[in-house]
Simulated assay, not measured.
Amino acid sequence: MEINISARDIRAFLAVVNDLSFSQAAQKMHLSQSALSTLIGRLEEAVGARLFHRTTRTVTLTAAGEALAAYADQLLSDIERAVTAVRDIAEVRRGRVAIAALPSLAARIIPRLFRAYGEKYPDVRLSLIDTLSMPAFELVREGRVDFALTAANPAYTDLDYLPLTTDSFVLLMARSHPLARGRGAVRFTDTLSSPHISMSRHTSVRQYLDAAALQRGVGFYPAFEVDHLATIGAMVREGLGVSALPAMAADVIGATGIVRRPLVDPAIRRSIGLVMRRAVPLSAASESMLALLRQQVPDWVS
């Protein structure tokens, strides 16, 4: 049986229960006595029982009325809490935002983003998955995160991509490396005679390097392929090779014992942006996070 009871019906019932007087309850609810009687009648129809015995002088609860009175306060409280929770989420007072991000972006951008967002919306729960580009796209596709902060990948045509900034590649090398002697930019093709320490094939970094080599009509065959920036930094410091990385990834490694030069011919630029599911609206909390990202990322990466 479908039960159609509103919070207003419950409030009207409790007003009569508290005063055992329709006239006094009507005054407190700013209703006419006939309007209050209509509400009580609708409630009685919904529960299928009379709730009050009424005479010209007295109002008393029936057995059904006493049964409802035992639950009415809690029922009204539950309704009010549910409505408040929904409004909190709609107004970004509460809720949850889950983000996937490339490790370099997770280290460079996300901490400042979460701090700035948390100061404005302290009750919103934030979560982060730092992962490589392809898993980040899959997490968005599966709905496990609200969006991903990652490099563009035209293979995922079913997802929306919103560009935010670009990240230029640089060359990292030990101070003893011959290419470290100059001060200016280094031609990408001039680096290929040295062993390269590169991220693995399924990363966006490797895809950009492969494309740059193809653009110059050569192949890119790194001596070492790894998945972690810390490993690349340690191997470069030991003089095991050079590494071409986006500037934000190089920032994570740091400069101790490493020389950094811009890469040119070609200049390799990686687009950084947000990946979202198409035609799936974001929550109010995620929308506010998106607005903060679009506003602040250009300053954070400069």
Rank of each mutant, 00 (worst) to 15 (best):
R206W: 07
D160L: 14
D158K: 09
R93W: 08
I79Y: 12
R201A: 14
M235V: 03
D158N: 14
A85Y: 04
R216Q: 12
A98H: 15
G182N: 01
T55H: 09
Y71N: 09
S176D: 14
K120T: 14
A15N: 06
P222F: 12
G184W: 00
T131A: 02
L292H: 08
S104Y: 02
A15R: 01
V264R: 05
I253L: 02
A26K: 03
S193G: 12
R108F: 04
Y156V: 11
A64C: 07
G219Y: 14
R181Y: 03
V97C: 11
G48E: 05
P262N: 06
S283R: 07
G182H: 05
D88A: 12
V236D: 06
T56S: 11
D251F: 02
L292N: 11
Q33E: 15
Y208I: 00
S21D: 13
M173T: 11
Y121K: 08
P111T: 09
N18V: 12
P163V: 04
A116F: 08
P266S: 01
I5C: 08
V47S: 01
P266M: 02
V86E: 10
D265G: 04
A15Y: 06
Q295E: 15
S6F: 07
L274I: 15
A174G: 15
G41F: 03
Y121L: 06
I109D: 07
A250N: 12
G239F: 02
S23N: 02
L113G: 13
L76D: 04
S194L: 08
Q215E: 15
L14R: 15
K120G: 06
A72G: 07
L36C: 01
A46C: 05
V92W: 00
A64K: 01
I79W: 09
G118T: 13
L172E: 09
T55L: 09
V264P: 02
L214S: 14
R270P: 00
P154R: 06
S176A: 12
P103F: 10
G48Q: 01
A180F: 14
L159T: 03
V218P: 07
I253D: 05
V252H: 07
R278P: 05
F169Q: 10
N18L: 13
E142K: 10
A247Q: 12
V252M: 05
P266K: 00
L290K: 15
L274S: 04
S283A: 05
R50C: 04
A279L: 11
R108C: 04
L240Y: 02
T189P: 05
S104G: 09
L159W: 09
R206A: 13
H196G: 09
I197Y: 04
A249D: 14
R8P: 00
A249E: 09
L263W: 00
G219M: 13
S176L: 03
G273N: 00
A152T: 10
R278D: 10
R50Q: 07
S127Y: 07
R269N: 10
M29Y: 00
H30S: 07
G41W: 08
A255Q: 11
I99Q: 13
S243K: 02
R278F: 08
Q296L: 08
D78E: 12
T165N: 02
V17K: 10
